[in-house]
């Protein structure tokens, strides 16, 4: 029993992850409570999506899964599948900003957050990052970048680079999936559904290519796992092949799932309540 509990404890404790996860959890829970009190309860599916997404993200960063991820290449790839694809997608599906906004005092929301959100210093970079071409390039580019062998070597040895790698995956994942799964129709400020479709298909071939390259390579591409040692006595090449398959197939499957979700939004567009019905921060942001 205590051995199981020890597995749940952080391997490399990060106060930042703890604070961010607790803040997100507290805000969402308070928002859920406010929504319930106001007679507009958050749907079960949305709640489930948020808590699963947050739980998975926390688990791969702050349990002994992180230890395995540091010392088995395929667990590292599975960790990034959660950090870049599954976790952010689930979090975005819950539309957490709408729920969290309910928990914030009106003054804070209207006097500080909304002006900050519309400030040119925030809008400018946000617009650039959320350009469909830039967003797609960034989404795939980050996966490639952290898998450049020399960069991967540095990231797996250095704690600051390791943290930068994991945070960049989560942050970019949230931005990308928000752009793709934003429930607003184009008329209400969302991105055109056709463009979203192109985006989710466009990110697939580069990931398949990279995954296949890793899986089918006949030599060890990432020697950092030999330097630090592997947790399980798996042959290094097998470890790399599983890692390649994880980069290849489930990652590409996430595009298929996303395409179905976009299709659903497309079919139901206009049926959702007009913007402004909830105290959303982004309701009128384009």
């Amino acid at each position: 029993m205590s051995a199981t509990l020890a597995q749940l404890a952080p391997y490399d404790f990060s106060p930042t992850v703890l604070v961010v996860a607790l803040a997100a959890a507290a805000l969402f829970a308070a928002g859920q409570w406010h929504a319930h009190r106001d007679g507009e309860p958050v749907g079960i599916a949305r709640g489930l999506a948020f808590w699963t997404g947050l739980g998975l993200t926390y688990a791969v960063l702050q349990t002994h899964i992180d230890y395995l991820a540091q010392h088995m290449f395929w667990v590292h790839r599975a960790q990034h599948l959660v950090l870049h694809h599954l976790g952010p997608m689930l979090l975005i599906l819950a539309l957490p900003h709408e729920v969290m906004a309910r928990a914030l005092p009106t003054r804070l929301r209207e006097r500080w957050l909304r002006p900050l959100w519309h400030h040119p210093m925030v809008r400018g970079p946000y617009r650039v990052l959320q350009n469909p071409v830039v967003a797609s390039l960034l989404f795939v580019g980050l996966i490639y970048f952290w898998l450049i062998p020399s960069v991967h070597f540095a990231a797996m040895l250095s704690v600051p680079y390791y943290n930068a790698m994991n945070w960049s995956m989560v942050a970019e994942g949230l931005l990308f999936w928000w752009l793709v799964l934003d429930p607003r129709s184009p008329a209400a400020g969302g991105l055109g559904f056709g463009v979203r479709m192109i985006m989710v298909w466009a990110i697939m071939p580069p990931q398949i290519l990279l995954g296949a390259y890793i899986a089918l390579s006949e030599r060890i591409l990432f020697d950092v796992y030999d330097i630090c040692g592997r947790v399980w006595a798996v042959p290094p090449l097998l470890d790399q092949q599983i890692a390649g398959l994880l980069t290849w197939i489930p990652a590409a499957m996430m595009s298929v799932v996303a395409a179905l979700l976009v299709l659903r939004l497309w079919l139901y567009q206009g049926e959702r309540a007009a913007p402004g019905s909830g105290p959303s921060l982004t309701a009128e942001a384009g």
């Binding site: 970048f145 450049i148 020399s150 960069v151 070597f153 540095a154 990231a155 250095s158 680079y161």
Partner: peptide, 10 residues
Amino acid sequence: LLAFLAGCAP
């Protein structure tokens, strides 16, 4: 950014 980060590998 890429150049900067690539510089992180000695």
